[in-house]
Design a protein around this nucleic acid. Structure first.
Lengths: 218, 218, 218, 218
DNA sequence: TATGAATGAGCCTTCATTCAT
DNA sequence: AATGAATGAAGGCTCATTCAT
C-alpha cells in the first residue's frame, strides 16, 4: 500500500482517538490497532507520538481554513460574508467534531513543543475570522471609535486589536456553542450561525456608529 | 500541621499543576513535591488522583460562582448587573487563571467519572451567567420573540433556550478572551468586560425589539 | 524467541517463586528477573499478576490430574488402582513440590477471584481421588452402610458423601505427608503410598463389612 | 485500660484478620481500626507486624495443645483416648476456625523468620497427636512390624517414625476435612472424628497384627 | 496510656520507543 | 513495506513504621 494513503489512514484514526481520549490518554498501540497496522509503521511514517499529533493538528487546521476560505470567496456585502464564514465554521465543527476537538480542546495537557504547534494552527484559524471581521468593519461606516477604556490610541493599531478581540470572542463562543448544539440536536449549524450573527453583528454596527454602551448610565 | 490547612495547601498546588500540565500529564509525585510533603499524605487526605482533581474542581467552581453572586448582588438595572457579572468573571480569571483552566480546559482527556464532575461544575457556572442574561432580557422590552430560524415555538421554553445560548456564547467568548488578555497585558478585566458588553448587549436589544438581522433576503 | 516457549519459561519460574514466597510476597519484578526478561513481557504474555498465577495454577493442576489418570489407566483390582493413584500422587509431589505448594498452600491470602480458580483446580484433583475411592468401594463387598453417626440416610447419596470424605482425608494426609517426606529423605514416594494404603485401606474394608469401630460402648 | 487486656483484644482481632486475609494481605491499619485503637498502640504492645503474627501463632497453638491435653487426660483404653483427642481437635477447629487457619494455612507466604515460628508451633501440635498415637500403638498388640518398604531397621526408631507418619496423616486429613465440614454443615465435629477413627484405626490394628496390605496380591 | 501526622520504600501496571527479521 | 519481540522509564497507590505531642 502506497505511503501517502497509509499516512492519511493513520491520521484519520489518530484524529478520532486523540479527540476521544485526549493526547496523553491516547496510546499509540490503540491507534495502530484501529488503523489495522503494526506499531512500527506508525513510527516509520510519523516519527513519534508528537509527530503524529502535529500531523493531525495541521491537517485539521488546513481543512478548517480551507472551508472558511471557500465560504469567504462568495461575493456579497461584508455582513453576508461574515455570516457565510460562520456558517462554514459551524458546518465544519458539526461534521468534523473530532478535528475541532483536536484543535481546540487540548490546551492544558500538551508539552511545550506541541503547544507551540497548537498555537500556530489556532492562529491560522483565528486569522481567517479576524480577516472577515476586519473586512466587514471596514466595509461599514468607518468612522467608529473601535475601542473604549484604556488602550485606545492609534487608529490603525486599534482596528487590528479590535478585530482580534472580536475574532477571539467569536471562536470562543463558537467552541462553546458546540456543546450547546450537542444538547439541542434539532438546531442546524446554519441556525446557530444566524443566532450568533444576530447577537453580535448589530452590536458591532452600533459601536461603529459611535453609540457605545457605557456603564452606569445605559 | 493540622489537616485542614494541609488539605488547602495541597489543593493550591494541585490547581497550579493541573492547570499547567493537564490532568494526565500531571503526576501526584510532582504535586506532593511542590507542596513540600510526601506522596502518601496526598492519598491520605484526598483519596486518589481523581479525588484530588475533583477537590480542585469543586473549590474553583465554588469560588467563581461566589464571585459571580457577589457581583450580582449589586443593585441596578439588568444591563448594569450583567456588566458587573462579566467584570467579576474577568477579574476572577485574571486573578485565578489556573482555576479557570482547571475548570474549562480539560474536556477531552478525562475519565468518564471525572467528566461528570466537570460537567456539574461547569453547569453551575453557566447557570449563573444564564440567570443574569435571563433577568436582563426580562428587564428589557419583553415582547421580542428571541429565537429565529428553526426551533422557535413556545415562548417560555424559548426564553430558556435563548438564555442558554447566550450564556454559552458569553462563557465561550470569555474563555477565549482569556488568551487575548494574555497577549494584551495592558487591558484590565473591566475593559474586556466593557468591550464584550458593547459587542453583545446592543445586538440583544435590537433582537428583542424584533429587528433581527437576516441573511441576504430573509 | 517464540511466544509459546517464553510463556512456558515464565510460568516455570513463576511456579517456583509463588511456591517459595506465596502469592502476595512474590513480586512480578523478581519473576521477570529470574526468567531473564523484562517486566513488560510478563504483562504482555500473561496479562496481570493474577493471570500469571492462574496460569500456574492451571498448568500444575493439569499435570497432576494427568499423572493421576495415567496411573489409573492401569488394569487391576480397585485396591491396586487406588495404590497406583497414590503412588502417582506422591511421585508428582516429590518431583513437582513447587506445583503442589502452589495448588494447595495458598488458601488464606488470595483475592476472591483467584480463590475461585484455586477451588476449581483443587476440585479437579479431588475428583480424581474420589473417583478411585468410589470405584474401590464398589469393587469390594458393596453391602456396607458406609457412614455412621448422624447423616446416614439414603445409601446412594451416602456413598457420594463418603467417597468425598475419604478423598478429602487422603489429599489432606498426602499434603501433610509432603512435609514428613521432606524430613525423611530416605523414603521413596512408593513407600509413602504403601504406608498410607495400609493405614487406610484395611480400615475401609472392615467398615464396609459392617464392623465399624464405636466409641466406648457403641 | 490495662496492658494485658488490650494485648489480648488486639490479638483477638489480629487472628481474625490474618485468618481472613492471610499475612501479607492483612494491614496493621485494619487491625488497629477493628481493635478500636490507634496504630502506634499496636507497635507499642506487639513490636511489629511479625511480632503480632507470632503472638497470634503462639496463643492459638497453646489453646489447641491445651484442648488436646484436656481431652487426653480422660482415662480409658488407648483407642478411646485417640478418639477423644480427635474429637477435641475437630471441636477446636470448628470453634476456632480462625486460629486453625492462622496455624495451618499460612505456609507459603511467610518470611523465613516467621516460618521458623510456624514450624515450632506446628511441631507442638503434631507432638500431641503423635503422643496419643504412640501410646495407642503400644497399648495394643505390640508385635507389629510398623513400617514396610525401605526404611525399616531399628524398632525403636521405627516406632517413632511411624507415629510421626500417622500424626502427619491425621493432622493433614483433619485440616482438609475442615473444608469437607464446611460443605457438609450437618456434620458435628464428633461425627467427623468418628468417621476418621473408623477409617484409620482398624487399618492400624491389622497392620500391627502383621496383616499388612501388599501390592499386586491384595 | 494514647494518637494525629508523616514518610521511605516498594509494587503493579502502562507506555513510547526500538531492533532484528 | 511490514512486524513480532522486547524494554527503560515512569506513574498511581499502599504499607509498615516512627516521631512529636
Amino acid at each position: 500500500m502506497p505511503r501517502r494513503i497509509r499516512e492519511q489512514q493513520i491520521i484519520d484514526v489518530a484524529v478520532r482517538v486523540f479527540s476521544k481520549r485526549g493526547y496523553h490518554a491516547s496510546s499509540v498501540d490503540e491507534i495502530a490497532d484501529l488503523a489495522g497496522i503494526s506499531k512500527p509503521m506508525v513510527y516509520l511514517y510519523l516519527e513519534s507520538k508528537e509527530g503524529l499529533f502535529i500531523a493531525c493538528l495541521r491537517r485539521e487546521a488546513d481543512r478548517l481554513v480551507r472551508a472558511f476560505q471557500d465560504a469567504a470567496r462568495e461575493a456579497g456585502p461584508p455582513d453576508q460574508r461574515l455570516y457565510a464564514g460562520l456558517r462554514a465554521f459551524f458546518a465544519f465543527v458539526a461534521e468534523h467534531r473530532d478535528g475541532w476537538v483536536v484543535l481546540y480542546r487540548q490546551a492544558a495537557e500538551l508539552s511545550e513543543s506541541i503547544a507551540r504547534e497548537v498555537a500556530l494552527a489556532r492562529r491560522a484559524v483565528l486569522a481567517q475570522v479576524a480577516g472577515l471581521v476586519r473586512e466587514g468593519v471596514q466595509g461599514q461606516g468607518a468612522q467608529g471609535q473601535g475601542a473604549q477604556g484604556e488602550g485606545g490610541d492609534g487608529a490603525g493599531q486599534l482596528r487590528e486589536e479590535d478585530a482580534d478581540f472580536v475574532a477571539h470572542s467569536l471562536v470562543g463562543a463558537a467552541d462553546s456553542l458546540t456543546d450547546w448544539m450537542e444538547r439541542h440536536p434539532g438546531q442546524s449549524p446554519d441556525g446557530v450561525a444566524l443566532r450568533l450573527m444576530n447577537m453580535v453583528w448589530a452590536g458591532m454596527e452600533r459601536v461603529l456608529r459611535g453609540e457605545s454602551w457605557v456603564p452606569h448610565s445605559g
